[in-house]
């Protein structure tokens, strides 16, 4: 099946039927396909209110809150701690905003989900690279919220369009 041979209206409908995490993985396949997704899904992406960095504990969760619940995008986890936790379907590396990142496809509650791994010393740069990619992919209209917890980590990174931040106060039991 050659995707480019399908009429653009059909391509758009296919992309529309894909979840954000799948669109993100598809966008990594080539620069042209990324452009095509961005062009065809402009309205859909503009309707995203904000993307949440759920960082109250590891692994970090990136998701979009919608009327019906949550659209999951990806997880960010530390190599040494979560290598065994996420059973791999497939490991692969990709150049994301100029940095080679380690990805893993794994199943969570029988749903495939992508995980980006980082080594402790690279945490900041990995989050920055991934964020820059998401910023370019979803467009500048999308805002980002950072959710953290005082018992876990107080650091809030400087990311583009990070418009809100919430820190849960309390002790982790």
């Amino acid at each position: 099946m050659i995707l480019s041979k399908l009429p653009s209206v059909v391509q758009n409908e296919i992309f529309y039927k894909m979840e954000y995490s799948d669109l993100l993985l598809l966008s990594l396949a080539s620069k042209n396909i990324k452009k095509l997704i961005k062009l065809s899904q402009t309205r859909r992406f503009k309707s995203i209110g904000y993307i949440v960095y759920g960082c109250t504990s590891e692994p970090y969760l990136l998701y979009i809150r919608n009327k019906h619940g949550v659209d999951f995008i990806l997880k960010i986890a530390q190599h040494e701690e979560y290598d065994k936790y996420f059973c791999s379907i497939k490991d692969f590396q990709f150049d994301v905003s100029g940095k080679i990142l380690d990805f893993r496809l794994c199943y969570q509650n029988q749903i495939p989900c992508p995980v980006v791994f980082f080594h402790p010393q690279e945490k900041k740069t990995v989050i920055n690279s991934m964020h820059n990619y998401l910023f370019d992919f979803f467009g500048s209209t999308v805002e980002y919220h950072w959710k953290s917890a005082s018992y876990y980590e107080f650091h809030i990174p400087q990311l583009r369009n990070l418009s809100a931040c919430s820190i849960t106060l309390g002790t982790h039991l």
């Binding site: 050659i2 995707l3 894909m18 598809l26 396909i33 379907i89 497939k90 990805f103």
Partner: peptide, 20 residues
């Protein structure tokens, strides 16, 4: 068609949909 690439890596998607 969208389900064909669910849970696939970019490399696999490229092969399935013959993306250059």
């Amino acid at each position: 068609v969208a389900m064909m690439v669910k849970g696939k890596s970019p490399e696999e998607i490229r092969e399935i949909w013959m993306i250059p």
